[in-house]
Amino acid sequence: MRQVNSTFAEKMHFIDIEHTHVHSFGHLVLPLQGTLNLKTRQRSLIVDYQHILFLPPECEHSYYSKERNEFLVFYIPYTMLSHNCADEVKYLELDARWRALRFLMLSECQNKKTNTIAMNQLLYYSFQLIQQNQEYPSIRYLQENYHTSIPLKTLAILEHYNISYYSQWFQKKMGVSVQVYLQKLRLQEAKRLLRETNYSILAIAQQVGYEHQASLTRIFKQSEGMTPSAYRNSSINK
């Protein structure tokens, strides 16, 4: 297995023959042209000009490309990575900050007198971007569509995870199951509607995603120890 003791980067072109390997260092992959098809045990991803990819150490992956392509690939020693940045694959949109960072990284790599300290500082900043403000598409989808029926498969596809792994991933990230998280979102909105509107209990139940009033009443009793009507009355009397 190849060992990497210090950071370096190179431009790479990938061929159309699928290759599988694992290594003890991390990769930061920034697209310059074309697309890269990549699979891990849990995810299937397409890295294009709109995304960046971080592969942690010891992550077995397969990859290939069927078109002309070019990527800027960083080799990152495990010792340089923080725990939060080294535990899973990161697949992020290439926003304005990443575009600016890619420009600086590419300029530094093309400089014949590359400054290792400067390159490391750019990488450390990239780790901060990875760790901060990462929005998970499936969680955003739940927050925006909690009032509808949401198949688990839909959520797994949004994160590019196998459906068999998605529930484990969600539990790890959010500390609760998908179903419990969905109930919390619905309950939160139902409580707001009970406090701020005169809608009937049935109308509120249907507005937050329950077909029957009894379903909302059951969730309320489990969470609040009272019925929706009692909650509304207690809010009015405060």
Rank of each mutant, 00 (worst) to 15 (best):
M1Q: 07
R2F: 11
F8D: 01
K11R: 13
M12T: 15
T20K: 08
H21T: 07
H21D: 06
V22M: 10
H23P: 09
G26N: 01
H27N: 09
P31H: 12
T35M: 14
N37T: 12
L38D: 03
K39V: 03
T40D: 01
I46G: 02
L53E: 01
P57L: 02
E60V: 09
K66L: 10
K66T: 11
E70Y: 08
L72D: 05
F74V: 07
S82Q: 05
N84G: 12
V89S: 01
L92M: 14
A96P: 00
L104C: 08
S107N: 14
E108M: 08
E108C: 11
K113D: 13
K113F: 09
I117A: 09
Y136C: 00
P137K: 04
P137A: 08
Y146H: 03
T148D: 13
K153Q: 12
I157E: 08
N162G: 07
I163K: 10
Y166C: 02
G175E: 05
Q179N: 11
Y181Q: 01
L182D: 00
L187D: 02
E189N: 07
E189G: 02
A205D: 03
Q213H: 10
R218I: 02
I219G: 00
K221F: 06
K221L: 10
Q222T: 08
P228Y: 10
K238S: 13
